[in-house]
Design a protein around this nucleic acid. Structure first.
Lengths: 136, 136
DNA sequence: TCCTCTCGGTAACCAAAAGATACCTTGTTA
DNA sequence: TAACAAGGTATCTTTTGGTTACCGAGAGGA
């Protein structure tokens, strides 16, 4: 069951047949896709908390914890705790997470391929709309 | 802080100047992907403003206008105005937009395929973390 | 011994952005 | 007169992300 007919549970989910919104909502976080990419690129598969933070410059501890918690809740990331005295926490992608990264890779590819086109379109739009020359 | 003036930010997703990140940021809007999907699925190719709003329940007029403007600026959406007395505005995907929709389709496919898995993971997580388990 | 640092977070507070709601325009039609 | 068409603007609230401080244990240096 994907929906429990609760329109006001999380804003307004209108189309139950379109889970794209929910998935993109997860991905819409500032750090989610980056964390997924880091975990996907790790040869050992596992990355420790502080290590992850070092690899994503600018991500605060709070955002790291929050992002990882969300991804763990979605079943995309696995959290493994070593109960040592300084507790070590390792994060890795689940198989689900690996497949998500593969899907995400298509979007990354598109972005890299068409970044220049988007940039050109933006420049042209700004020039023609934002009093670029027809306003003495 | 972070080195934001990296010349080869094109391959570095973790640089804010990376175009891939900007694209993903643009898509992270609440309505962008939905609008793209609506436009992509339209057989006639063009959708009118009020028509689009009717197909996306919950999207306010302001957000519709704002989202469409952003997408138009990115060169993904084309805006055609019929200068009638009640002005008719038609929106359609550009070829760039069509290719973006194709990339997005992979993510949609993933979402539809794994929506139940994500949902299950969430339920399990909530049950074991929130208050379902052992709460001392 | 004391001071500090590390690790994996959490809690409180704060700024900014996103989004929603309400009201406005302009001209025609019912 | 009201409604519709396609928005614009203004204000409000919610969400998001960032900063700082803190915890509780262990380890290292002075």
């Amino acid at each position: 069951m994907t929906v429990s007919t609760a329109p006001d549970a999380r804003g307004d989910l209108f189309d139950p047949a379109c889970p794209t919104r929910q998935i993109l909502d997860r991905l819409s976080g500032k750090w989610s896709s980056m964390v997924i990419k880091i975990l996907a690129e790790e040869p050992a598969g596992e990355v420790r908390f502080a290590d992850l933070r070092r690899r994503v410059p600018g991500m605060s501890a709070k955002m790291a914890a929050q992002t990882l918690k969300e991804l763990e809740r979605d079943g995309v990331v696995l959290r493994r705790v070593e109960a040592l005295t300084p507790p070590r926490v390792h994060y890795s992608l689940t198989p689900l997470g690996v497949s998500l990264d593969a899907a995400l890779a298509h979007l990354r590819e598109w972005a890299e391929l068409h970044a220049h086109a988007v940039d050109r379109a933006r420049t042209a739009y700004d020039r023609s709309h934002d009093n670029g020359g027809t306003n003495p």
